[in-house]
Design a binder for these strands. Structure first.
Length: 259
DNA sequence: AGCACA
């Protein structure tokens, strides 16, 4: 379970001098929403963990009403994060866009449709109606699915041709906290007491299967690297030993190492 | 790439 974590940026507030005049040609001016649609999420991360992480990350901008994510083919790598207002969503979008969560820069836009959670809070009386409509719409989509898919693919293809190269490289404004690193068979141990030795650590980490090697850093006595045979084994040990009180008092920090 | 909410 990820811990509470620093916001991705220093929270600089920008004035919203909205330029409503000419919709930039290749930028089909997005309609704002209380909900953000996030893409390019690391698909190795289990959805429960991802949802928890997103909640923690986004609550620094305002109350998070809901986070929806699915692991099926069509929906994996994506999530919907709902706030109580568009203002909050807009601010969050600006600051979080391009932020590398679990090593993958998040792609953030406004969601196309209204979330149940938002309707529930903003217009509770219409909630049932909203849900009815939504499900109705879903039924229809399913029905004429094959056509829709083809038409969509075609439009996409055309669009790609004339489109300007997408500026995929947005430099993150902050360094990724350890907790957001993707799984790795190597663990990074921090906050070790000065006097631990290799044997102690080996004994500790060998409680969990497939330990491969423990490496101490001669010059930095409070950190170490612990390697397992595979990511799964490393992950088990990490979950078990993160915040473990190694000498009865100092909690060690165990995260995946950076690649 | 992919816009959901049992």
């Amino acid at each position: 379970m990820p811990e509470v974590v620093a916001a991705p940026s220093n929270g600089d507030v920008e004035m919203t001098d909205a330029p409503p005049a000419a919709p930039a040609e290749s930028t089909p001016e997005e309609v704002e929403s209380e909900t953000l649609y996030i893409q390019n999420l690391n698909e190795k991360i289990k959805v429960a963990v991802m949802k928890q992480t997103l909640t923690n990350l986004f609550k620094t901008y305002g109350d998070v009403l809901d986070v929806v994510a699915h692991s099926n083919i069509r929906m994996r790598g994506q999530a919907f994060v709902s706030f109580k207002s568009k203002d909050v969503a807009r601010k969050a979008l600006k600051e979080v866009k391009g932020f590398p969560l679990y090593s993958k820069p998040m792609q953030v836009t406004f969601a196309k449709t209204r979330s149940d959670a938002v309707v529930k809070v903003l217009e509770e009386d219409r909630f049932d109606e909203h849900k009815k409509e939504r499900l109705e719409h879903k039924r229809k989509q399913r029905f004429d699915n094959p056509h829709a898919v083809k038409a969509r693919a075609k439009r996409k293809a055309e669009k790609v041709d004339g489109a300007a190269p997408v500026p995929t490289t947005k430099r993150p404004n902050v360094l990724m906290p350890d907790e957001y690193l993707p799984p790795n068979k190597i663990l990074f141990i921090q906050n070790l007491p000065e006097d631990v030795n290799k044997d102690q650590l080996t004994t500790l980490f060998a409680q969990y299967p497939n330990l491969y090697e423990v490496r101490l850093i001669p010059t930095k006595k409070d950190i170490a690297f612990v390697e397992y045979a595979d990511e799964g084994s490393a992950s088990v040990a990490k979950d078990a030993l993160h915040n473990y009180k190694i000498d009865g008092e100092t909690k060690i920090k165990v995260t995946f190492a950076r690649k």
